Simulated scan of single mutants.
Amino acid sequence: MSESSLPPVSQTQPIKGSYTMHPFARFIQILGKGRNGMRALTLEEAYEAMQMIACYDVEPEQIGAFLMLMRVKEESAEEVAGFTRALRESLPTQGKEMAPAIDWAAYAGKRRQLPWFLLAALILVKQGYPVCMHGMNRSDARVYVPEALDALGMEAANSLQEAMEGLNETGFCYLPISKLSSLTAQLIATRELLGLRPPLQTVARMLNPFNAALSLIGVFHPNYAAIHTAAAQIEGRRIVVCKGEGGEFERIPDRPLQLSGCDQGELWGESWQPLMQAGTASREQRLNLRHYREVWEGDSGDAYGEAAAVGTLAMAIRALELERAEDAAHRLASQWWRDRHQADSAREAIL
Rank of each mutant, 00 (worst) to 15 (best):
residue 3 E to T: 06
residue 4 S to P: 00
residue 6 L to M: 13
residue 8 P to Q: 06
residue 11 Q to C: 02
residue 12 T to C: 04
residue 18 S to H: 07
residue 22 H to C: 04
residue 25 A to P: 00
residue 26 R to L: 03
residue 33 K to D: 15
residue 36 N to C: 10
residue 38 M to Q: 12
residue 42 T to G: 13
residue 48 E to H: 03
residue 52 M to H: 08
residue 53 I to S: 04
residue 53 I to D: 03
residue 56 Y to Q: 14
residue 57 D to M: 05
residue 59 E to A: 09
residue 61 E to D: 05
residue 63 I to R: 09
residue 75 E to K: 01
residue 75 E to H: 08
residue 76 S to Q: 07
residue 79 E to Y: 07
residue 84 T to V: 12
residue 85 R to I: 00
residue 97 E to S: 10
residue 101 A to F: 04
residue 103 D to K: 00
residue 105 A to G: 10
residue 110 K to F: 08
residue 112 R to E: 06
residue 112 R to L: 09
residue 118 L to A: 03
residue 121 A to C: 13
residue 123 I to Y: 00
residue 125 V to F: 00
residue 130 P to N: 05
residue 130 P to A: 07
residue 135 G to K: 13
residue 137 N to T: 14
residue 143 V to D: 00
residue 146 P to V: 06
residue 152 L to E: 09
residue 153 G to Y: 03
residue 155 E to P: 00
residue 155 E to R: 14
residue 161 Q to I: 12
residue 164 M to G: 05
residue 165 E to Y: 04
residue 172 F to W: 04
residue 174 Y to W: 03
residue 179 K to C: 08
residue 184 T to G: 11
residue 189 A to F: 07
residue 190 T to Q: 10
residue 193 L to C: 03
residue 199 P to Q: 10
residue 200 L to I: 09
residue 204 A to N: 12
residue 210 F to M: 15
residue 210 F to R: 12
residue 212 A to K: 10
residue 212 A to D: 09
residue 214 L to V: 11
residue 218 G to L: 06
residue 224 Y to K: 15
residue 227 I to E: 13
residue 229 T to R: 08
residue 236 G to D: 02
residue 240 V to E: 10
residue 246 G to H: 07
residue 258 Q to A: 12
residue 260 S to T: 06
residue 264 Q to M: 07
residue 269 G to Y: 02
residue 271 S to Q: 13
residue 272 W to C: 12
residue 272 W to H: 13
residue 273 Q to I: 11
residue 279 G to F: 08
residue 280 T to E: 11
residue 284 E to Y: 10
residue 290 R to I: 12
residue 296 W to P: 01
residue 297 E to S: 09
residue 303 A to K: 14
residue 304 Y to K: 00
residue 310 V to G: 10
residue 312 T to N: 04
residue 314 A to H: 04
residue 314 A to P: 00
residue 318 R to C: 10
residue 322 L to F: 07
residue 324 R to A: 13
residue 326 E to H: 05
residue 327 D to W: 06
residue 332 L to F: 01
residue 336 W to E: 07
residue 336 W to A: 02
residue 337 W to P: 03
residue 350 I to K: 14
